[in-house]
Each structure stands twice: as structure tokens, then as C-alpha cells.
Amino acid sequence: MRLADLLTASFLALLGGLVVFDAVRLGIGWGTDGPQSGFFPFWLGALMIVACAAVLFQAARRSDGTSFVTRQQLGPVLKVLWPAIALVALTHWLGLYVAAALYTGFYMRWIGRHAWLTVLGVAILFPLVTFLVFEKWFLVPMPKGPLEAWLGY
């Protein structure tokens, strides 16, 4: 827990530094017509650094043995996270609908051990309904891949 706390606060402090850096470029003064573009970001960033330093100090003083996440906890979390990442990555190549079909099917079979028929049913019907709702009904285009292109979309 302590390590995670230290890391997070350091990262946020770094972010604050980045903000301050950009704010200086934009001008942090108070012009004739009020603050310049960088005025608020500068103080937000600066305060962020100070606040994070205080959090770091707090965390460093505290010593608790609890870990941020146990091995048993991390397993299921990753089992949700990495397929979700794969879904988004696949969307770039295959388009959203095909990626969603693959992802839903894979997940149902892998985690839920559902019967193949259920898996196929949901994995095909769900993207199809999504397709109809978004592309046909609401006319909101989603990312599309080779399959849709082949079908004339």
C-alpha cells in the first residue's frame, strides 16, 4: 500500500511539473484584461506538486504491511483488464463489431464456460444489435474493419 501510494503521488507530482512547464510557455502573468492562458494551469500545477509532496511525506512516515493488491486479487482484475485492452486493440484492425463479437465470445467461453451455442448466440447477436442500433437507427458510425468494407459499409 505504501509503495503504491508513493508511486502514485510521485507520478501526479511529475504531472504537476509538466503542467507548470507548459504554463510558463503560455505566460503566467496577470495581464490588463485578467489572467493569461497559463495563469490557472501554473497555480494548479504548482499546488499539485505541493499537495503531492505532502501526500508523499504522509505515506513515507506511515509504515503498514498491507500490500496494495494481493496475488489472489490481481488475478481476476487482470482477467477483466487484458481482454478489454485486447478488444480496443483489435478494434483498430477489425472494426468494433467484429472485435466485440470475438471478445464477447472469448470471454463467455473462457470465464463463464458457457455452452458453445449460447456463446455463439450472444457473440453474434449482441454486435449485430449494436450495429443495427448505432449504424442503422441512430446513424452514429463506429470504427469499421475489412468485413464491413467488404459488405459495403
Binding site: 477483466v80 481482454p83 478488444l87 471478445y103 464477447t104 463463464g112 449482441f126 463506429m142
Partner: peptide
Amino acid sequence: IPFAILTPVIVVICAVGSYAVHSSM
């Protein structure tokens, strides 16, 4: 609805929703 069905459906809907805001991956 069983977890293994609901989770991917929610994640896909979240992805669709995020994309729909600006049509941006």
C-alpha cells in the same frame, strides 16, 4: 445475467459510448 456475459457486454458498451462522443479511437 451471468457475470461472464454481462461483463463483456458492459465493456463493449463503454467502448462504444466513449467512441461515440467524438468518433475517436
